[in-house]
């Protein structure tokens, strides 16, 4: 079966001659939630940014549902069906909640647009805050808006960079439940996480990235108790 998202031997980085990604590969099957794990500084954010067109890819391929999207301009990616929720500053703080969604919706072709009414059904908290400036939302609501903003363009694959960062354990649970609901609507998810336990709890599979390369991968249920996991995290810290 064709992967929903496939990255093959990606090399890339912010400055020429300073590679951050050193041949990273991963593959996400349609309908899967895959967790992208790894120690701090491993290059997880850089890898998803490279796929999203925000960081140059020097070599390797990014394939979306079998189509080559390597090196496309970032603003073209939504039209291809790749959604991305960055880790920080992931909503337009100076626009209202409704405007954040209206903008994202207006930028994609009509047939791609998800009905905003349905979006507010999925995120009732946002419905009550339509007119509020997004910068005034609480951490959890802001994360919901960031996800909703990406979903409005009905992506086939959604990449999220640490959606649990800065949230209380209870809110992490709420956000992750919502991600499962999103997956159940048919969206494939690549989830970058520091919170290994929470991520493995909702993921089908996980990939561990260390120093810009994948070092371990397998079903989430098996990796939970895999001693190699701890070793990879500790190894990077040492």
């Amino acid at each position: 079966m064709t992967a929903a998202l496939e990255m093959a031997a990606i090399e890339g980085g912010y400055e020429p001659g300073l590679p951050i990604l050193r041949g990273a590969s991963l593959s996400v099957a349609p309908g899967e939630i895959v967790a992208l794990l790894g120690p701090n500084g491993a290059g997880k954010s850089t890898l998803v940014k490279a796929a999203a067109g925000l960081v140059p890819v020097w070599s390797g391929r990014v394939m979306l549902g079998g189509r080559d999207i390597t090196g496309l301009a970032a603003h073209r990616m939504v039209h291809e069906g790749l959604g991305f929720v960055p880790q920080t500053e992931n909503v337009f703080a100076n626009l209202s909640v409704l405007e954040n969604l209206q903008l994202a919706s207006a930028l994609v072709a009509r047939k791609r647009r998800l009905d905003l009414g349905r979006m507010f059904e999925l995120f009732p908290d946002l419905d009550r805050q339509r007119k509020l400036e997004a910068g005034r939302l609480s951490g959890g609501q802001r994360q919901m808006l960031a996800v909703a903003r990406a979903l409005v363009a009905s992506p086939s694959v959604l990449m999220l960079d640490e959606p649990s960062a800065g949230l209380s354990p209870k809110l992490v649970g709420v956000v992750f439940e919502r991600l499962k609901a999103v997956r159940d609507t048919g969206v494939t998810i690549l989830l970058v996480e520091q919170n290994v336990k929470a991520a493995l709890a909702i993921a089908d599979r996980a990939v561990v990235l260390v120093e810009g390369r994948e070092r371990l991968e397998g079903p989430a249920a098996e990796l939970v108790n895999d001693p190699r996991m701890a070793a990879l995290y500790l190894g990077a810290a040492a």
Partner: peptide, 21 residues
């Protein structure tokens, strides 16, 4: 939409691109 895209770009150009601007 143009106006919202302008305000969005002023706020955060990278996010604007990700959103399709």
């Amino acid at each position: 939409t143009l106006g919202r895209a302008m305000r969005a770009t002023a706020m955060n150009p990278a996010l604007a691109r990700v959103a399709g601007v």
